[in-house]
Amino acid sequence: MSKIIFENVRKSFDRLDVLNGVSLEIEHGETHIVVGMSGCGKSVLLKCLLGIFEIDSGDILVDGMSARNKSQRNDYLKKFSILFQGNALFDSMTILENVEFGIRQLRNISPGQLKSIACEKLLSVGLEERVFNLYPAEISGGMQKRAALARAIALKPDVLLFDEPTSGLDPVTGGVICNLLKDTVKKLGITSVTITHDLKVAEFLSDRVSMLNKGRVVWTGHANDMKNCKNDFVEEFYQSSCAILGRH
């Protein structure tokens, strides 16, 4: 379990400010959801946390380890696993090889153990053995999501990150994946951060929710408290989401 602190994080691209001073604390073992409209900087925030984007100012601390400290970079990165929006499975590898490849890079184990761990993880996310030797393009989106989750949890991370975990999935498969993510995080007892614009996903998965608007956190609280929030943007977001979901 890890504690994550964002301290006044700023990031811009070609003079366009995407993150405008994000400050946020995510507690040990918390399931935290970051919601916001498309283009508000959610994915950039996640990539800054992962060190894929270097932040312009401020800091991100994970158990006291800074994302900006290059000398600790490998130890820092080992804390995370991520389920990318598009799954990011390697096209040229089979499903089994994808999981094995991840483990091989981070843990020094024998080929026999490698295969058994990879198979165990794939079975634990509900994939059948018949798909192990297929390529990502040969299986459905839901199966790809499961395979990507297996690769992520096989690395034994302290923090699991989910970027739009239900995007591109039908409602039924999306629901199944949400349940799987919730069970996985609960079973592993680790900190997780999920990026989504789907309020239903946020309510289902979260301990706490942060709302991002124009590169800033405008509200943090429990998902159920969102309807009582007096912030104009949060109110608008909540009501629009409810209208789509058919709630009043």
């Binding site: 992962l50 080992k78 990318f84 929006q85 499975l89 390697f90 890079q105």
Partner: peptide
């Protein structure tokens, strides 16, 4: 280019590759 678009290159980075 396709690997970049589908975030496979970012995924390599997260695996310390």
């Amino acid at each position: 280019g396709s690997m970049k678009v589908s975030e496979q290159i970012d995924a390599l980075g997260t695996l310390l590759v």
